[in-house]
Design a protein around this nucleic acid. Sequence first.
DNA 1: AAATGAAACGTTTTT
DNA 2: CGTTTCATTT
Length: 661
Amino acid sequence: MLNPEQLAAVNAPYGYNLVIASAGTGKTSTIVARIARLLEEGVEPQDILLLTFTNKAAAEMIKRLEQKFGKKAKDIEAGTFHAVSYRWLKNIDSRLVLKQPKELKTLFKSIYERRDFSQVTEIKPYAASSLYDYYSLYQNSEFIKSFGEWIALKNQEHKELAPIYEDIVLEYEELKNRYGFLSFNDLLLKIIENKNAIKKFKEVLVDEYQDTNNLQGKFIDALQFDSLFCVGDYDQSIYAFNGANIDIIATFKDRYHPVNVFNLSKNYRSTKYILDLANRVIINNERIYPKNLEVMNRKNAILPKLLAFEDLYAQYEGVAARIRASLTPRNEIAVIYRNNASADGIEAALREQGIGCKRKGGTNLFDLKEVKAIFDLLAILINPKDLLAFIHILEYAKGIGANIAKDLYEALVLCGEGDLKKGLLNPKDLKDPFTKRARNYQLGLFDDLGQLGSKSRFQGLSILDNPVLKHPKLSQDGALYLNELAKLLRLRLKRPQSFIEHIVDSFIFNNIKEQLAQQRAKRKDGSIDPTLYNEAIHKIERRAALIVHIAKNHNDIYKFYNAMVLGSSEMVQGEGVNLLTIHASKGLEFKEVYVLDLMEGRFPNLKLVSKGGSIEEERRLFYVAVTRAKEMLYLSYAKYDRVKKQEFLPSRFLQEAGLVD
DNA sequence: AAATGAAACGTTTTT
DNA sequence: CGTTTCATTT
């Protein structure tokens, strides 16, 4: 049932509509009802675009609409900015390959490391990783200045270095292009470039509008629509580090004419005590518009409780003990923290007390070597020129490192006329596929590659006639790996599930499995612990089976691969108590909430504040954290860290909340 | 150029 | 604590 405020928003005329929806005011229901109304009015589902912050949020809203409208709700264009961009780009080019940010960072770093900064200035240059982060932030926020200009303006001390930075970025873009990689940012940038390829929508709805950054803002500008419906809350903007620009929601009225602004002020989620506490703290931020929340939840109001502990680990144990004693169902309890570093402590304490829990984010499935290997093999299968995946796989062959792998890659691409797979299976018979290297030798830039070897060094391989086998430093193992890779590539498969099954059954994957298990079972003296070894093998096989299982839900191999890149962090495994960062908790609600590590320095995270963050943003984080709670809220801190021998003061937010003096 | 073992390092948040 | 980097040997 909708209240009059919600109804007013739902019935807004076509045009520019902004809904200010504070925490717990039924934002999702309002968006769902708005879409329902559009459908009832006869708007075609495919003419509605719903942009959300996570794919899970989009899926939930569509699910609710399906209950009322059946299958037709699935035709609504819905998802994150990135997921939707990907879907559209796929219509233009069906073979896109997304890369994990971590991988791209490695590529970036390899370019960075070839530069010499020492001649230019005394200033210590940004580390490769920071420079990459700055570049990503630049892409998300700046459209007029060049990267060099932008970074020079941001930090005058680096002005001398800016041309080098800019050159690195240029080369990075070039390489990314050559290897056929797309980053998350590229998805949006490409859509903005190709805006004519996108059809016109009747209405575009944007959820979590306060966390829109300039790139996403530009994306919305690139769309054609009759009507725009944005929903957000200034006090819940917590993505400044990703370029989220609070001005976008604040200047909505100035950028569009005429606008209708709706305000949802009735909070259905939390009790009065919880809301009062949240408001006492957020009031310390400058107000853009007044906030008078009306409390609708009047049941069992329990006072929020401060939990103070002498030591960090006493805190984790204490919170776990409380959860064990709690009568609330485990999956309605959440433990929320500012920094992922808090997660291990609380997870261990919960496990120790036999309490199941599920963690979102943190250990990405993709971070596991065996999972990475599966997807690298898949990448080689579907991307004709994936250098990084090729190097990663060949590095498991004895006698091959990054350098030889790169030689082989370039030679294969040369023999395959731009296609790695062709170079391996149907190579042009070049006398010397390593000419590039030889030319460098003539310039005196590199050591001699040595005499080309003979292909007949190797026997019994099905790729015996491949000219890249002439590489003088290629080992038996290396040749064997290339041969096995060729066998894998020769398969003509369709369904993602068969792809993954064949990868998992392959010689290469089993060899990698063996190597990883041995590594993981190694004792200090170098011997292998057989129990650990069997355990490791078992774990790897279970994970491989999990990937096969996930693949069953997909029909298109490209879509499957990219869905894994786009959505791997949204997957959660396990049952029980929810462990989340504040950022991950956005949009969720729980009956009972614990906020951990409320110490000055850690939360607010003052290191970040000094590096360009802001105390206001930290305060909004606190606001988001406490407003996840429906009935019970526990705020916890420790006075001392025994391991780091560090004393803590309670967070200033606890003072502002009136819980400590 | 690769493999191995020893030492240092560092820890923000997400699509 | 586990990963990343460095130094040494082959």
